[in-house]
């Protein structure tokens, strides 16, 4: 199998480019904890309301610099509907679903999480600036899907 010299150059260039992309995201993900939303914790989707931490949804301060936000998603809303967190602190979002698949998505941030019944999804994010951010569901969940949204208020520290 003969390769033209220029094709060799092109394939080396192309593969090197792919390796660089992969290297950048890999290093950033695994050394700086910038992995996409995920988590291996599971939950009985019928018993979300009585299972910790979802028996007490809302914002909890964990320590000086860390807050946990526990959210239940259901057709067509989120509980709690009012969320207020400080800017500049690490927020750990923990979400699960009481019924079908939803998403917990905050446009203009890195928070874009699939919400899968039976699983707890987790994402760490620090808001840089205060403001009122939109939260919406971007996975089809039924006829009222486009009404499924809420807001998160990010306040000065």
């Amino acid at each position: 199998m003969h390769l033209h010299k220029f094709e060799k150059i092109w394939l080396i260039f192309g593969i090197a480019m792919l390796a660089v992309f992969l290297g950048i995201v890999g290093v950033q993900a695994f050394t700086q904890g910038q992995t996409p939303a995920g988590g291996m914790e599971k939950i009985d989707p019928e018993k979300v309301d009585v299972t910790a931490p979802f028996d007490d949804p809302g914002v909890h301060q964990i320590d000086e610099d860390t807050y946990e936000v526990v959210i239940k998603a259901m057709a067509y809303g989120y509980e709690p509907s009012e969320i207020k967190v400080p800017a500049g602190k690490e927020i750990i979002f923990k979400v699960t679903s009481k019924d079908v698949i939803h998403s917990f998505t905050i446009p203009n941030t890195k928070v874009n999480m699939m919400v899968v019944p039976g699983q707890v999804n987790e994402k760490r994010y620090t808001f840089k600036e205060p403001g009122t951010f939109l939260i919406l569901c971007n996975e089809y969940c039924g006829t009222g899907h486009h009404f499924m949204h809420t807001e998160i208020e990010v306040v000065e520290e």
Partner: peptide, 11 residues
Amino acid sequence: NPHEADLRGTL
């Protein structure tokens, strides 16, 4: 022979 062809434009 395509393997010896002038492919500078392609590259």
